[in-house]
Write a protein that binds this DNA or RNA. Structure first.
Length: 349
DNA sequence: AACTGAATCAACCGCGTGATA
DNA sequence: TTATCACGCGGTTGATTCAGT
């Protein structure tokens, strides 16, 4: 295993970065900008290769990074974008302000992918519905008007799940569906209806808050989760301290930073860029083009505005909901599901 | 309390691509 | 046109942390 050309010239340190190294790198870049990364280590007084410096800056030290757990909206966006873009983590991350490709990739591999695999066996889904929040995941439907959010009467703007899956009617054979993670994209691309739904909880206004920034996450999490975040962010605190120390708002503009409170961009805008950048003679199939166009048509409802939100009891449940919905869509992918069926009674005990 | 397996995530590696000489 | 270099990306690794026994 060789090293990068920039690393061959001198002995470079590898492994985790020390606070002192971080400090040097931040100090240098905030003062001079990174310029040519290969020259950064020498100029910054670091015994690292330029590539390592770049990675450290991009994935960890950049002041515009959002730390903490992914919000349900972000998770939804990732799932949606991944269904279209595949493992183009950098492309996906571009639509998640403050998130890096590495972060998105890790999140996918550690959380979402795991969920997908675990859903290969459907009985595990019972946990998803066992907390009395099942209504939160039902589509708004004329067949269930009580669940219609008064804020969103125009349900053409919403996405509906084909919720008529047998699993909800109690006769689901979990051997019927096997997900091949490698063909996950193709499942989505076959979906005629969008796989996401807008879910609202009419009896819990707090769920309308889009409030998964780190600070507010803590107020919503149970104590164990709070502890976990606090622990896992131990190094982040170090990062914040350094950033606070060295970076002031006037210097940030040099680095094309996003505003800290920027909202998640609309998928439709994001995808639009991608669609327009796809050459017609590229490897992207007609099918994929069509899928992208479909997403463009439906994306408003999965890009919650201030008064809209995707609801979840917590992040993992929300991912569950998305995955379930994709399975249900997949199971009926050969036909267009125009009207979801909501079971009137359910018993998941 | 100690051990162990699982989960997480920062960092590394190799490759592809574009710019430049 | 070719060679070289730097950058960016996606896949993978491995150290650390967490959770269960």
């Amino acid at each position: 295993m060789g090293h990068h050309s920039c690393c061959n010239k001198q002995k470079v340190k590898r492994g985790l970065w020390s606070p002192e190294e971080d400090e040097k790198l931040i100090n240098y870049i905030t003062t001079y900008g990174h310029g040519c990364w290969s020259s950064v280590p020498k100029l910054a007084g670091l015994h690292r290769c330029g590539k390592s410096c770049r990675l450290r800056w991009i994935n960890y030290l950049r002041p515009d990074l959002k730390r903490g757990s992914f919000s349900s909206q972000e998770a939804a966006l990732i799932i949606e974008l991944h269904s279209i873009l595949g493992n183009r983590w950098a492309q996906i991350a571009k639509h998640l302000p403050g998130r890096t490709d590495n972060e998105v990739k890790n999140f996918w591999n550690s959380s979402i992918k795991k969920k997908l695999l675990s859903h290969d066996v459907f009985p595990s889904l019972s946990t998803f519905f066992c907390n009395g929040s099942i209504e939160s995941f039902f589509p708004l439907s004329t067949e269930n008007p009580s669940l219609i959010n008064p804020h969103h009467h125009n349900h053409q703007d919403h996405l509906y799940l084909p919720i008529s899956s047998p699993i909800l009617h109690g006769n689901f054979d979990h051997n019927d569906i096997k997900i091949d993670i490698n063909n996950y994209n193709s499942y989505f691309l076959h979906i005629q209806n969008p796989m996401l739904q807008t879910v609202v909880s009419s009896n819990n206004p707090s769920f309308f808050e889009d409030s998964w920034s780190l600070g507010s996450v803590l107020s919503h999490l149970n104590p164990s989760q709070e502890i976990q975040i606090t622990k896992s962010d131990a190094t982040t605190h170090h990062h914040y301290n350094i950033v606070e120390k060295f970076i002031n708002p006037s210097t940030l503009q040099h680095y094309d930073l996003v505003e800290p409170n920027i909202t998640v961009p609309k998928v439709c805008d994001s995808i639009e860029d991608y669609v327009y950048n796809i050459p017609y003679n590229s490897s992207v199939s007609q099918e994929q083009h069509e899928a992208l166009e479909r997403v463009q048509c439906y994306t408003p409802s999965i890009c919650p505005q201030d008064d809209q939100t995707l609801v979840a009891k917590n992040q993992m449940e929300y991912i569950d909901a998305l995955i379930i919905s994709s399975f249900q869509s997949t199971a009926t992918s050969s036909s267009i599901v125009t009207k979801p069926i909501i079971p009137s009674t359910l018993d998941y005990s």
